[in-house]
Design a protein around this nucleic acid. Structure first.
Lengths: 181, 181
DNA sequence: AATTTATGTCAATATGGCTGACCTAAATTA
DNA sequence: TAATTTAGGTCAGCCATATTGACATAAATT
């Protein structure tokens, strides 16, 4: 912990494109920081899951089902951008071991709506807690505006055509959650 | 594109811990936005790599070798946090197909120092360009401080004990690059 | 009645990880 | 110098997660 002359961005500020028409220099710092930040971000749940013989795939499924109770299988496939065969294996394990239940749709009886069981919710919340601890620690090192700044940056990084769906999904899930009275 | 009441964070501001000692509510928005942002961030190179019959693993190796010419195999293993057997397979393909060369260390002749060939550098720069395009687009939607804000947030998300190494690695690689005269 | 949709399943394949064992050559140390 | 450690490579097998393609069933829609 000594030499720290690396606190200012080494690249010139990013523009859409240089005046010369030549492509911008790569934004090395953010490219690499995204890699390292995400690597560590997922490592916390990964380690915890290892004790359950579950993996990252199970985490993702359990997370979104817990956040969106009653979601359809098809919705999950769109969010995760995987095939139903890939989902099938993981989902089956979660169902067999009592973390997720499937209920017939009331309107459309072909649907298998997905719900986290209490056991599943507990695990999902535990994993979310690990990730929240890391985010909280990070935000606490920064100013009070950091949450909103991070939020805006991450939103802007999402495909423009997928953005609305993501934001609506987050907003919907938030609303559906019982606010503590 | 209509209803947008989701532009403000739905969670209360994150604190290290609540006064009550009860764990914080999960920071759902950043947890999910990190997932979606990273998913799309890696999708650009993934798509491009598919044409070469290369995958994400090749990208990571080529990226770091290109950024750190002459790096040791052992360094790469530490950065990627994988085993040498895992590295071996992808590295061999990159070497066989002429994207990376290995040179005997001058001081220590056991070392196989890694360098991107011109062909390898071209591919690495192409992939970095794709990622830079996404980042540039994102930053251009935000204020001029956004780059620095994103940088700080991502740094804070990294494991505290790994942080210095990451930052030094980035700084070192930047310095080693020839500044255009 | 015919078709489409939601979901599930079987089979084969690819990728990218892992562990464990073992090897060579070169550097370091006793 | 002899013994040990280090840097790197390799073989073999296993596991998790993803893919494509084909096919099956039941319920909704036309």
């Amino acid at each position: 912990m000594a030499d720290l002359n690396y606190t200012t961005p080494p690249n010139r500020p990013a523009t859409a494109e240089n005046p010369a028409g030549r492509p911008d220099d790569p934004i090395w710092d953010l490219i690499e920081l995204l890699f390292f930040a995400y690597r560590d971000f997922v490592s916390d749940p990964d380690d915890a899951l290892a004790k359950f013989a579950f993996g990252r795939a199970h985490h993702r499924v359990l997370h979104f089902v817990n956040r969106n109770p009653g979601m359809k299988v098809a919705d999950l496939l769109v969010i995760l951008k995987i095939t139903k065969q890939s989902l099938g294996r993981v989902l089956k394990q979660l169902v067999d071991q009592g973390y997720i239940v499937q209920k017939e749709g009331a309107n459309d009886r072909r649907q298998r709506l997905l719900y986290a069981t209490p056991k599943g919710e507990a695990l999902a919340m535990k994993l979310a807690g690990l990730q929240t601890a890391r985010i909280s620690r990070a935000l606490s090192e920064l100013g009070p505006a950091a949450h909103e700044q991070a939020r805006r940056f991450l939103i802007a990084m999402i495909d423009t055509d997928g953005r609305d769906g993501v934001l609506q999904s987050i907003a919907r899930a938030d609303q559906a959650r019982k606010p503590k009275p």
